[in-house]
C-alpha cells in the first residue's frame, strides 16, 4: 500500500519531467529489486536449513516413516478423496442453510419496536449460547440426543441432525458478521429510503441488506472456510468422512500418514478459498480508500 502510494505521489510530482525514468523512480526500482533478492535468498536459506537439519535429527527416520510415508500416502489417497466427497456434500447443503438462518437471526437481532423485543431477546440468547458452546458438544447433543428421543428412521439420521448442529453453531457466527455489516451501513441510507416512503421491511430488503451482505462477504468467507473443516466433527456421530477415514487407516496401518494425506486434500480446498477471501478483502479496502 505504502510503496504504491509513494509511487503515485512521486509520479504526480514529476508529471512535467521529460519521458524516461526520473532519479527517484530509478532508485525505487533498485530498492524493489534488492528486496526481491533479499527475500529470495532468505527463503532459500530457511528452506535449506529445514531440509538439511531436520533429517539430521536422530529420530527423523522414525518420524518420516510414521508421518511422511510415501507408499502409505499413495495407498490411502484415493480412499480419502472418496471420503472427502462426504465432507463436500455436507458442506454443500449446510452452507446455504447457515447463510439464510444466520441472516434470519441477524434480522431478529435488528428487530425494532417494543412488540418485537422477544425476537431480539431470542437472537441475543441464541448468539450467546451457540457462540459459547463448543461445536463438538452441539454435535453430540443434537446428533445423539434428539434422535434418542425416539425418532423413527430416516428422521434420526446423523446426517440430518449433524447438519442441524452445524447450522445451529455456525449461523450464530454468521449472524454476528451480518449484524456488523448491517450496522456498518450509514444511517443516512435508512433516512433516504424512509423519506421515499419505504417501509422498514422494504428498506432492509432493498437498501440495507444488499450493501451489508456484500460488505461482509470476505468475513463470512472465513466463517465458511472454518465450517469446511468443522464438517469433520460430524464423524463423531457416525458418518465416515475424510478425517474418520484417515483415523481408520491410521489405526489399521499404525501410521499417521493418512492424516497427512487428509491435510493435503483439505489444503487443496482451503488455501485457494483463503487466498480468494484475502483478495476480496484487499479489493474492498482499496475501494473504500
Amino acid at each position: 500500500m505504502q510503496t504504491s502510494a509513494a509511487k503515485n505521489s512521486a509520479g504526480a510530482a514529476i508529471g512535467a519531467a521529460p519521458p524516461g525514468k526520473s532519479r527517484r523512480q530509478e532508485r525505487e526500482r533498485r530498492l524493489r529489486r534488492r528486496s526481491v533478492i533479499v527475500a529470495t535468498i532468505s527463503t532459500f536459506v530457511v528452506l535449506l536449513l529445514l531440509v538439511v537439519l531436520i533429517p539430521m535429527a536422530p529420530g527423523w527416520e522414525k518420524v518420516q516413516k510414521a508421518f511422511f510415508n510415501g507408499p502409505i500416502l499413495i495407498k490411502v489417497f484415493p480412499e480419502l478423496l472418496q471420503a472427502f466427497l462426504v465432507d463436500l456434500m455436507i458442506f454443500a447443503w449446510s452452507a446455504p442453510i447457515i447463510a439464510l438462518w444466520g441472516l434470519a437471526i441477524a434480522l431478529c437481532r435488528d428487530a425494532r419496536g417494543p412488540a418485537l423485543f422477544p425476537l431480539r431477546l431470542f437472537a441475543i440468547l441464541y448468539n450467546d449460547v451457540f457462540r459459547g458452546v463448543p461445536v463438538i458438544l452441539v454435535v453430540y447433543l443434537v446428533g445423539f440426543g434428539i434422535p434418542g428421543l425416539g425418532l423413527p428412521r430416516p428422521w434420526n439420521s446423523p446426517y440430518l441432525w449433524g447438519t442441524v448442529a452445524l447450522v445451529l453453531s455456525y449461523s450464530a457466527y454468521v449472524a454476528e458478521v451480518y449484524r456488523a455489516g448491517i450496522e456498518s451501513i450509514h444511517e443516512s441510507q435508512r433516512s433516504a429510503a424512509k423519506s421515499l416512503g419505504l417501509s422498514h421491511a422494504h428498506t432492509m430488503r432493498y437498501v440495507i441488506l444488499p450493501q451489508a451482505i456484500r460488505r461482509v462477504i470476505p468475513a463470512n468467507m472465513n466463517n465458511f472456510i472454518s465450517l469446511q473443516k468443522d464438517v469433520a466433527l460430524l464423524s463423531f456421530i457416525g458418518p465416515v468422512e475424510i478425517l474418520r477415514q484417515a483415523g481408520v487407516q491410521k489405526s489399521l496401518l499404525a501410521n499417521f500418514t493418512p492424516y497427512l494425506a487428509a491435510s493435503i486434500i483439505f489444503l487443496a480446498v482451503t488455501i485457494p478459498a483463503t487466498r480468494f477471501a484475502d483478495h476480496l478483502i484487499a479489493r474492498q479496502n482499496k475501494e473504500r480508500s
Binding site: 443516512s188 441510507q189 433516512s191 433516504a192 424512509k194 423519506s195 421515499l196 416512503g197 450493501q211
Partner: peptide
C-alpha cells in the same frame, strides 16, 4: 405521508 413529501439531502444519499 412521506410519499407525498419529497426530501433531498445534503449528502445525496443515493443507494
Amino acid at each position: 405521508i412521506r410519499q407525498r413529501i419529497g426530501l433531498v439531502f445534503q449528502s445525496y444519499n443515493l443507494f
